[in-house]
Simulated scan of single mutants.
Amino acid sequence: MTTRVVDAAGIEHATAERGARIVSLVPSLTELLFALKLDAQIVGRTGFCVHPRNQVRHVPKVGGTKAVKIDAVRALQPTHVIVNIDENERDTVEQLRAFVPHIVVTHPLEPRDNLALYALLGALFDREDEARELSASLEKQLHACASRAWPMQKVLYAIWREPWMTVARDTYISAMLRLVNWHTLPDVRGGEKGAARYPSFNLDAAWLAQADRVLLSSEPYRFTRQHCDSLSHDTRFKGKRIELIDGEMVSWYGSRAIEGIAYLVDYASR
């Protein structure tokens, strides 16, 4: 009996046939597909899909997450393309719908959403046992994190400079940080009164005075120790803890979330 699964856009998909050809336009989901042991069916990925390193190098690139080469995807004749609401452009997805039988839309907003993500892809591609194993590992990490008492802190999580940019509280990154009781600044949610999910700010913003920590992410902008040193000498950041953080561990959902939660617990314990 054919199972039918529903993606984040509310679109129903029948269980894929064994000969399914998958193109992933989301780095963290490419890694998840490999974790689900779908190596032989992954026929395309973006240039930002860099994990697992040894396996992805054999998979053809089709551009970037926001600069997809439509003709390159077409040439691969995929039956399924995996996309994400935040990472891929709507226009790109609509162009792909013209010739790809199944566009699978994802949109995890918090760590626990990975359970549904594992279940979705596991059911779709007949990897339910592998999906259950990932879910058990994630539940274990979530439980270990929740079993500890974390002091509340307000943090600035910087993802870009020139202009400086951070994350709103309805992003996956912010939800990850809340696992250790860290609350991102400013206190905004994307879409509220025109607020962006990844708002820009300037270093004179009054709300920066509330920050206990300043976290400079390794991606998408690659902050370095030099940036930490520069801010530490800025009087506007006097007394604040300024440090680098591994952006992949905090922002990548999918299978990386399991390792990411363990990383965050260790990071917050220092």
Results as ranks from 00 to 15, higher is better:
Cys228Phe: 00
Ile245Ala: 12
Leu179Met: 00
Ser174Asp: 06
Leu96Met: 06
Ala205Leu: 00
Arg90Asp: 02
Ala119Asn: 08
Asp170Asn: 15
Met176Asn: 08
Ile261Pro: 07
Trp207Arg: 09
Asp126Pro: 07
Ala144Ile: 00
Pro52Tyr: 02
Asn54Tyr: 13
Tyr118Pro: 12
Glu243Leu: 10
Val5Leu: 12
Ile82Arg: 04
Leu121Gln: 06
Asp39Arg: 07
Ile82Ala: 00
Gly63Tyr: 04
Val250Asp: 03
Arg112Leu: 06
Leu25Met: 09
Trp252Gln: 10
His183Cys: 05
Gly64Val: 08
Arg222Leu: 03
Ala35Pro: 05
Tyr267Thr: 11
Gly44Lys: 05
Thr235Ser: 15
Asp71Thr: 11
Lys154Pro: 07
Phe223Asn: 03
Gly254Asn: 15
Trp150Ala: 03
Thr79Cys: 06
His13Met: 05
Val26Glu: 06
Ser217Asp: 11
Gly44Asn: 09
Val23Gly: 00
Glu219Gln: 10
Gln55Lys: 15
Arg57Cys: 10
Ala131Glu: 00
Asp71Ile: 04
Glu259Gln: 14
Arg53Leu: 10
Ser218Trp: 12
Ala123Gly: 14
Trp182Thr: 10
Trp160Pro: 03
Leu215Tyr: 10
Met165Ala: 11
Glu128Ser: 13
Glu31Asp: 14
Lys240Asn: 14
Leu138Gly: 05
Ser28Glu: 00
Lys238His: 14
Ala8Tyr: 15
Ala262Val: 03
Arg21His: 02
Tyr263Gly: 02
Asp212Gln: 09
Lys69Asp: 11
Arg74Pro: 01
Leu264Gln: 13
Arg53Tyr: 05
His51Ser: 14
Leu36Thr: 00
Lys240Cys: 11
Ile258Gly: 14
Ile242Ser: 12
Phe237Tyr: 07
Val68Thr: 13
Val59Gly: 06
Thr235Met: 14
Gln77Leu: 10
Glu192Thr: 12
Gly247Asn: 09
Gln41Asp: 10
Leu25Lys: 08
Ala123His: 14
Glu94Ile: 09
Gly191Arg: 00
His227Thr: 01
Arg189Ser: 08
Asn88Cys: 02
Leu231Trp: 15
Pro52Gly: 12
Thr92Ala: 07
Ala116Trp: 03
Gly10Ile: 05
